[in-house]
């Protein structure tokens, strides 16, 4: 570590660009750590700045990396608002003491209770559903009403899904663990593994294209990748979607599994008011519409329309499981995948 010490003067000189903690002249800005990499977000931040005069400074990186960074930065962290795309990670951030509770009537009114932390540590901004995408020519929608349908023998060699490394697979299985316990969840993971059309590889979009190509007949995929494919202008994707349709499976008596992209105010926030303003802006009508239209996510705010390309496949009835459960059961889910041999 000696070289590091030599560098200290140099490092201090660099300071923290864009996050100078100048307490005497409170800058109108808010510092965001985000897992989301979408153009819609950039547009929203721009609109927020235009409407309020508050500048948005952004660092984008993966959830766990961002959490580790906040943890190491401690009380000095410049972060005001943490945005992730997994409720589990938000729950973890709370447990690790990185977030602070916020009371906001605006937020509480516009976000259904099951999509936010009961104490106000974090709030869901959008929903993503884990849905089935099937080949219209080979599958009837009645065959696909429950996640459990896919472990039946008739689906042997026909199921396409990403690797267990994928976060949304993990949270889907975590939800099953929360509802039915580990044994049922393991049986499901094992059943899917047996029925896979190929060893898991590629992205969600790749699974959809593979269904269109007949490599398998049904894919488990994230709703907003489905929405993007359905509205893509690329010729291969336009061709592929002709054969595809979406089903919204139930998890037993519960609805379709959803996870949220959400945000929480950092414990160390130096721009508290600005952070809350940004949060409220993000659940406002305008922002929610853009999430829905631009990024094909499900808005959390009641009354905002879902993107047409998704709406025409049917209504989403989300599972209202306490989302904190996803984080609590994530490690269990990963271990079950390993036991099931789902790579």
């Amino acid at each position: 570590m000696r070289p590091l010490l030599l560098l200290l003067p140099f490092l201090s000189a660099c300071g923290t660009p864009g996050a100078a903690p100048t307490d005497d002249t409170p800058a109108k800005e808010v510092n965001v750590y985000s897992h989301r990499h979408y153009d819609t977000d950039a547009q929203l931040f721009k609109a927020f700045t235009a409407a309020t005069g508050i500048r948005v400074n952004l660092v984008m990186a993966d959830d766990d990396e961002v959490l580790t960074r906040m943890e190491q930065e401690g009380a000095n962290s410049p972060c005001d608002l943490l945005i992730t795309s997994d409720a589990g990670r938000l729950g973890q951030a709370r447990m690790r003491g990185l977030l602070q509770p916020i009371r906001s009537a605006e937020l509480e009114r516009n976000i259904p209770p099951f999509l936010r932390d009961p104490d106000g540590h974090w709030f869901g901004l959008t929903m993503r559903a884990r849905v089935f995408v099937y080949n219209k020519n080979k599958v009837r929608p009645e065959q696909l009403t429950d996640y459990n349908d896919l472990v039946r023998p008739e689906w042997k060699g026909r199921v396409l899904v990403r690797s267990a490394e994928n976060l949304y697979n993990q949270s889907l299985l975590a939800a099953m663990v929360a509802h039915f316990g580990t044994e049922t969840a393991l049986a499901w993971a094992t059943g899917i593994t047996v029925n896979m059309a190929r060893t898991p590889k590629g992205s969600d979009t790749d699974q959809l294209l593979a269904v269109a190509e007949g490599i398998g007949d049904v894919a488990i995929a994230n709703s907003y990748y489905v929405g993007k494919l359905m509205s893509s202008s690329e010729p291969e994707k336009a061709k592929a979607r002709e054969n595809l349709a979406v089903a919204f499976p139930h998890m037993g008596p519960y609805g379709t599994h959803v996870n949220v992209s959400g945000a929480g105010v950092a414990k160390s926030a130096k721009h508290l008011a600005e952070a809350i303003a940004l949060l409220e802006f993000l659940v406002g009508e305008e922002a929610q519409r853009l999430f829905a239209e631009g990024n094909k996510e499900y808005p959390v705010r009641p009354g905002v329309a879902v993107a047409d390309v998704l709406q025409r496949f049917g209504e989403l009835t989300p599972d209202t499981l306490d989302l904190a459960q996803l984080g609590l059961n994530n490690a269990t889910a990963v271990k079950l995948f390993d036991k099931a041999g789902w790579r």
């Binding site: 590091l4 490092l11 000189a13 000095n76």
Partner: peptide
């Protein structure tokens, strides 16, 4: 280092 040196800002996120 931040904590030991009692810095008022964090080294993390600096170009250095």
């Amino acid at each position: 280092i931040d904590r030991q040196a009692g810095l008022s800002f964090t080294l993390i996120g600096t170009i250095g």
